[in-house]
Nucleic acid binder design. Structure first.
Length: 479
RNA sequence: CGGGGUGUGGUGUAACGGCUAACAUGCUUGUUUUGGGUACAAGUGACUCCGGGUUCGAAUCCCGGCACCCCGACCA
């Protein structure tokens, strides 16, 4: 049989991983390029993923007592300059508004690259007493950073995120909260996106501009590269001092509070795409999919109405059980529809035709494995639920297994270079200096992704300098 | 921001400096078909990324810009 040519192709992962990623976004209709450099249009099917992120995280944040608020997009330039490290970190990538109303502005306005400065300026007027603490605020917003090299979702000049900002009376409390929020992210990635992440602390050179310490969730993509998929910062009292946020404590003494900020962006959607998808298209975990089940009715002219009615009945049953389901009633051949939904990563496909109705069953086909099974109508809901649960679990397990297989512990620089070149996460000793870190990056392209929380004390010697080291850190090439 | 590459209907491609820019697919209509991309017919759809230049003549050559892709440096 001739292989027909179709309008959209998918480059296999083995041929060109990057090209494959772009093709998936295209065929699954997640995003389009915009007529502005480095910016993208998030199409409805892609935006539904972001809405799901918002839906789940809002619930988790509120459990922690965090409230949503909104601050302006534009920041007076002088505010951005208030904290020294912060401005140095962000200055090269800010967009600046210099004109408005046809005239030059007295003071340029910065388009927020992040909102610490404008929020904290305001926090200083909100906080007076220890009774005002902790202050727990989150905002859903877009931010802009001028980026030289962009890639849809993973790095765009404008991106969507949530940024949480909290203020606490002690550094211990702030640090604990920053870690709690990191754990919220970890849980979200595990239970919803089916992405296993490594939690840890960023090295000095990788930490956030102006932070006391930065905690991170690092995920491994299918090519072995790391993606920093969310971060949480303990800001210490650096910003409180810079923005003059102070409060009177229980002993009637003035004090500076301690702050955190934490964020998760549309980059995570890029991580989601790369984690599970295959050469046939997108693969979505059921917990993230806006369509969890697609029903493909198989009919001919005579039985069309009967089959469609039957399919609608199945749909209603599933909807009543909180399953997100859609019937593809288009007048196309079944194979055509299978390809459509395969590309879009719908976790489960139900085929229903005359033979099935006669046998009181349907055919269920898993997107992730292609595995087909017959399901009795009476057991439809329970079977679909358990299939979706299995898909969710298997996607996570496969991603975890892949990461375990591709995480190497090495003790020499030669082994290190080889393991990095092969596309692994590499656990190795380093002397802990920024110079050595930089040297390793220059020579191998690998950076310290984090000092994982779960590594034990393990004395050894630095793979590069031979100096003493007390613990292994995680290296990888990163997106 | 340096080095390299690409830019043609919605999508994937073709066209020596020379006919009305071609083919496939999509989309629309009709008939047919429907358990992994049915078949046929008719129709639809492109200032060949933008702006200059060279030329009798430019999708094609040159210059500039923009966007995208790859490799570096920089960053969520």
């Amino acid at each position: 049989m001739d292989t027909p040519s179709y309008e959209k192709k998918i480059t296999p992962r083995a041929t060109d991983y990057s090209e494959w990623y772009l093709d998936i976004i295209n065929v699954a209709e997640l995003a389009d390029y915009a007529p502005v450099k480095g910016c993208m249009i998030i199409k409805p099917y892609g935006y539904a993923l972001w809405e799901r992120v918002q839906e789940v995280l809002n619930i988790e944040f509120k459990k922690k007592g965090v409230q949503n608020a909104y601050f302006p997009l534009l920041i007076p330039e002088k505010l951005l300059k208030r904290e020294k490290d912060h401005v140095e970190g962000f200055a090269p990538e800010v967009f600046m508004v210099t004109h408005a109303g046809g005239e030059k502005l007295e003071e340029p306005l910065v388009v927020r690259p992040t909102s610490e400065t404008i929020m904290y300026e305001v926090f200083s007027t909100w906080i007076h007493s220890y009774r005002d603490l902790p202050l727990l605020i989150n905002q859903w917003a877009n931010v802009l950073r001028y980026e030289k090299k962009t890639k849809p979702f993973l790095r765009t000049s404008e991106f969507l995120w949530q940024e949480g900002h909290t203020v606490h009376k002690s550094i211990e409390e702030a640090d604990d909260f920053a870690r709690q929020m990191l754990a919220v992210y970890e849980k979200f990635f595990r239970e919803y996106m089916a992405i296993p992440v490594v939690m840890g602390t960023k090295s000095e050179s990788e930490k956030f501009a102006g932070a006391h310490s930065t905690y991170t969730c690092e995920a491994m993509m299918q090519d072995g590269k790391a993606l920093q998929i969310s971060t949480s910062h303990n800001l210490g009292d650096n910003f409180a001092r810079a923005f003059n946020i102070s409060f009177t404590d229980e002993n009637n003494q003035p004090a500076f509070p301690f702050q955190t900020s934490w964020g998760l962006s549309t980059r995570s959607i890029g991580g989601l795409i790369m984690s599970h998808s295959d050469d046939k298209g997108l693969v979505l975990p059921p917990q993230m999919a806006s369509i969890q089940v697609v029903i493909v009715p198989i009919f001919n002219t005579e039985n069309k109405e009967e089959i469609l009615n039957f399919a609608e009945g199945l749909k209603n049953t599933l909807i009543e059980n909180d399953i997100k389901v859609s019937v593809d009633s288009r007048d196309l051949r079944p194979g055509d529809k299978y390809f459509t939904w395969e590309k879009k990563g719908v976790p489960l496909r139900i085929e229903v035709g005359p033979k099935d109705i006669a046998n009181n069953q349907v055919v269920c086909a898993r997107r992730d494995t292609g595995e087909k099974s017959f399901v009795k109508i009476e057991e439809l809901t329970s079977s679909v639920k358990s299939l979706l649960e299995n898909i969710q679990k298997d996607l996570y397990d496969r991603a975890l297994e892949r990461r375990i297989q591709k995480t190497k512990s090495v003790d020499s620089y030669d082994e290190f270079k080889f393991a990095i070149e092969e596309g692994n996460f590499v656990l190795a000793h380093i002397d802990g200096t920024a110079e050595t870190e930089k040297l390793i990056k220059e020579e191998t392209g690998a950076t310290i992704r984090c000092i994982p929380f779960d590594t034990e004390e393990d004395t050894g010697i630095c793979i590069k300098t031979g100096k003493a080291s007390s613990r292994r850190v995680l290296f990888a090439k990163a997106y």
